[in-house]
């Protein structure tokens, strides 16, 4: 039985007898190579559930922010989660954004999510009209082209060095767990960037972030960014300007990264959401690396651990303090 059918059956069962009001999952999107969030409240709707390499959005976001009226407030929701998404659930449970009793976690094993912008680069911008994925290659067709691309070349940055592809915390697990991935290269992109001179790093930072149009899609799809009022939206005092001034833009991103320090699960939703294809994860990864090396923590992996930035050890390394 394929995982999709298993998923639908589980969802039907939860809706029928599990006391669950809705299943939050993905269904096919309106475009080729896309998926869209689905809030299935009936058995028929549950038959639209899918899980494949297009199911990138981290659905935990529907438990937070003002979207919470959808998933919370007296409703019991089943939610389908990949490895990274499950870590978001763990974090949000710890931070009291979700009540454990309000959620049934349906875990799936993940083979990585396709980054549409990488596929577009491969097709030279020509529109993809058909898409399929055999687990090793994806094939994309459009007017005047029909190409196979190795998956590894179009996977999201977040998935290239993913360590926890299976939902770590789940009530129901669908399919075969892939197990923890041993990767030496978890922080490869960070290390490569660190090698560059300060001058060069600044040039790259400028180049990347000057593309930002301040649409906040990155922030809004992030399940860790749930402040009732984000610091960029505060206007009394107004902390940062709203124009495309580069220093304002960079400050927005640096502070957002610090706000999700020890709370980012590296799901890559922000990067995939960005309409300007800014390689946002590099900074998240850098922060994750510091958090891991300094505090020995990974977000949302240990359900009992406090989030890194609200915790401390007295004897911690403080090499950055003036001697």
């Amino acid at each position: 039985m394929n995982i999709q059918q298993e998923l639908r059956d589980a969802a039907r069962k939860l809706l029928a007898e599990g006391g669950v009001d809705q299943i939050i999952g993905w269904s096919s999107g309106s475009l080729p190579m896309s998926s869209t969030p689905l809030f299935a409240a009936t058995k028929e709707e549950a038959d639209d559930l899918i899980f494949d390499a297009t199911c990138g959005s981290n659905l935990t976001v529907y438990f937070t922010k003002d979207r919470r009226q959808i998933a919370r407030d007296g409703k019991k929701s089943g939610v389908v989660v990949k490895g990274c998404d499950a870590r978001s659930i763990v974090l949000n449970l710890k931070e009291n954004q979700i009540k454990r009793d309000d959620v049934v976690i349906i875990g799936v094993p993940c083979d990585g999510i396709i980054d549409r912008s990488k596929v577009e680069d491969k097709t030279g911008g020509r529109e993809v009209l058909e898409f399929s994925d055999n687990g090793k290659n994806i094939s994309v067709k459009g007017r005047g082209f029909d190409i196979d691309i190795p998956r590894t070349e179009v996977l999201s940055d977040s998935c290239i060095s993913c360590v926890h592809p299976d939902a770590g915390m789940s009530d129901i697990f669908i399919g075969e767990p892939r197990g923890e991935q041993k990767t030496k290269d978890q922080y490869l992109s960070v290390e490569q960037f660190e090698e560059l001179s300060a001058e060069e790093r600044w040039e790259r930072t400028k180049q990347e972030y000057s593309k930002c149009i301040r649409c906040y899609a990155c922030r809004n799809v992030c399940p860790s960014c749930y402040c009732n009022e984000c610091f960029v939206d505060q206007n009394d005092p107004q902390w940062i300007g709203k124009t495309l001034d580069l220093s304002d833009t960079i400050i927005f991103h640096v502070i957002r990264n610090l706000h999700v320090a020890g709370r980012c699960v590296e799901c890559g939703s922000c990067e995939r959401a960005c309409p300007m294809d800014i390689r946002l994860l590099l900074l998240n990864r850098k922060v994750a690396k510091e958090v891991a090396e300094r505090f020995g923590m990974e977000t949302g992996v240990d359900p009992d651990a406090k989030p890194a930035m609200s915790d401390f050890r007295e004897g911690e390394k403080q090499d950055f303090i003036m001697g």
Partner: peptide
Amino acid sequence: NFVARRRFAVLKPLLEFIGIEP
């Protein structure tokens, strides 16, 4: 100051990372 220290421990390398002089 313990909580602050964690914050700075991340902020400082992050600033260096984007190319701000240490």
